[in-house]
Design a protein around this nucleic acid. Structure first.
Lengths: 342, 342
DNA sequence: TTGAAAGCGCTAACAT
DNA sequence: ATGTTAGCGCTTTCAA
């Protein structure tokens, strides 16, 4: 194997010292252009690659960002990670990825592992199962820059980038109303997660704003899955007055609902309108094409990373006021809410 | 912030030396249980977290695995990463993720960055745009353990975990034949990627095995996208004898084809049967439910990581024979290939 | 079973 | 503009 070249090797080659080489390689001002040039040349000639580990140990900066997502299998998070990485790489950071599998236990393991790796900052989207936040508080207490994305908790004094779930849900529900639906049901998600709580509130808010009386029997509490969608429909249609529209808290839930409605030969969107939330890729291509709310995933990733980098680079934790970036949801109108044929 | 606790702090506390503490923490045999116990207690009391950077510098092991995927936005890769991580974490490795965006340039940047980070091993799924493999050869030449997954190249002497694309394509095509389709088209992907080349071959093989004459005009070369699927249909239906079935090289391509067929009011599966490849999540829930071939994503990730860890831990590169793990594809029969109503 | 001492490769304060 | 020196926190001989 190409023996490990160090700055000492380069220094020897050029009859100079490691310090000079180090400075030249990092474009330190006060190193002559001539030296810089020869150092860079020799470096690439010897196929030198800076040892980041040594560099990190000495400088105290690992150039590592730890990212915890619930699951890489969920498209939404993949997409956010895409956004995160696109910025991280241009800023000289590498992304250490860890999946919590929606479990608080793994979430904590991920954080421990990040602590050990001495990451410069941490990005977290909280797991479904996380109810106790002490592990996150500890990160904050240790003064390690941390930012939540999508799944956030406002009570910990931790910065976050989220979309306006209330508004998105409001828009979705109001869209159904505008399209002529009146008896609108909601299949919601775990209420201890602010996102789903807010979406439920947004749904209620839209009903109220349009003078439609909310009916508790039209709310089904699911756990954000295809299965929940099916169950929601089963639940609603087991009762006397089924809804004429459903706002599902997430696209996969909507997919499950559609699947179940089709099995029951209930026509979408004529008999029942349906709208989801997330703008997953498949939505545009199923039948009927699914109306939904876009969450600006790429932008979310980028914003979260930028916020984190600010935190890392300022690092004046003292006097830092909690920042919260709220992205605008985007209503995507497609066929599944088109009650009257155009 | 919780001041950085080091093994020296623990040693001082216990009137012993850093060496002993280090040994105790890594359960070195030949340290008394008593000492181990007191060290572990003091460590957790002081909230000590091992500094992996220092540890890595000294030991030469970073416990980092670099993973390059084309895009985190593609479900398939998210799923493989899921498999990779689930094993990596139990083995004490962390995953450094890098996205090539299907570009050879970024792929190389990722590798450079991994080199700098002194990862213990690298997992790569080759980018679409990569035609020249010198950057990958260099990794191999440097003796850094590397394993390909899914998108592999057999000519570099690099181990790989792939599925049997030929067989999967063969199965898919033969399935169409079994179902009574005869004029079977194929929308393929970039032929310099072995996967898509093999799938085309598998398609041809199945036709031949069933004595169906291949018709070059029934092969459309796309680039693995929803758009390609649409274009494929446009291409086929612009000619005299359109096909009665399509084997799409990937599920999103199939989705595009379905989308275009629907627009043309062509009935699936009665008039045209269609089967994809990948078993993306949405396939089960679109109409008609998409027949496809499962690629064993999670298993692929796990196998790739295991192979890599073997390489890292044996590290007897000399005399290592190229290993290739070929996973069995799984035919998933659903509605889109059900020519005769049951 | 434990301690002493060296050093991984780099950077940064201080000196020149 | 460059050299000298020390040390980041850990692991690992070697010695006791």
């Amino acid at each position: 194997m190409a023996y490990k070249i160090t700055i000492a090797d380069i220094a020897r080659e050029l009859n100079t010292t490691p310090a000079t080489v180090s400075r030249a390689l990092s474009n330190h001002p006060g190193i002559s252009d001539k030296t810089k040039k020869s150092v860079h040349e020799t470096a690439s000639q010897l196929n030198y690659k800076r040892n980041r580990i040594a560099s990190s140990l000495r400088s105290g900066k690992s150039h590592l960002i730890g990212v915890i997502i619930p699951s890489a299998e969920i498209n939404f998070f993949g997409s956010v990670v895409h956004g995160i990485e696109s910025v991280a790489n241009t800023q000289g950071y590498n992304v250490l990825l860890y999946q919590s599998n929606e479990s608080r236990e793994y979430e904590e393991k991920g954080l421990e592992s990040f602590l050990s790796a001495r990451v410069d900052g941490i990005l977290v989207s909280i797991a479904k199962d996380t109810i106790d936040y002490s592990h996150l508080k500890e990160i904050k207490a240790r003064g390690i820059p941390i930012v939540f994305f999508d799944r956030a908790n406002d009570d910990l004094g931790i910065d976050s980038v989220v979309i306006d779930d209330y508004k998105g849900a409001f828009m979705a529900t109001e869209h159904l109303i505008t399209k002529g639906y009146r008896r609108i049901a909601h299949i919601s998600g775990p209420q201890h997660l602010k996102n789903f709580y807010d979406r439920l509130r947004g749904y209620m808010g839209a009903l109220q704003a349009n003078k439609i009386k909310a009916d508790p029997s039209l709310i089904y509490h699911g756990n954000v899955s295809i299965q929940s969608g099916k169950e929601g429909v089963q639940h609603f249609w087991a009762r006397p007055e089924p809804p004429d529209a459903i706002f599902a808290t997430e696209d996969f839930t909507a997919l499950g609902a559609i699947s179940e409605l089709k099995e029951r030969k209930i026509k979408i969107p004529e008999e029942v309108g349906i709208i989801g939330f997330a703008n997953e890729l498949f939505g545009e291509h199923i039948t009927p094409r699914l109306s939904t709310v876009d969450q600006q995933t790429i932008q979310m990733g980028k914003s979260a990373l930028n916020l984190l980098v600010d935190l890392i680079e300022k690092k004046e934790m003292t006097g830092h006021r909690q920042q919260k970036i709220v992205l605008e949801p985007l209503l995507i109108c497609r066929d599944s809410t088109e009650k009257q044929k155009k």
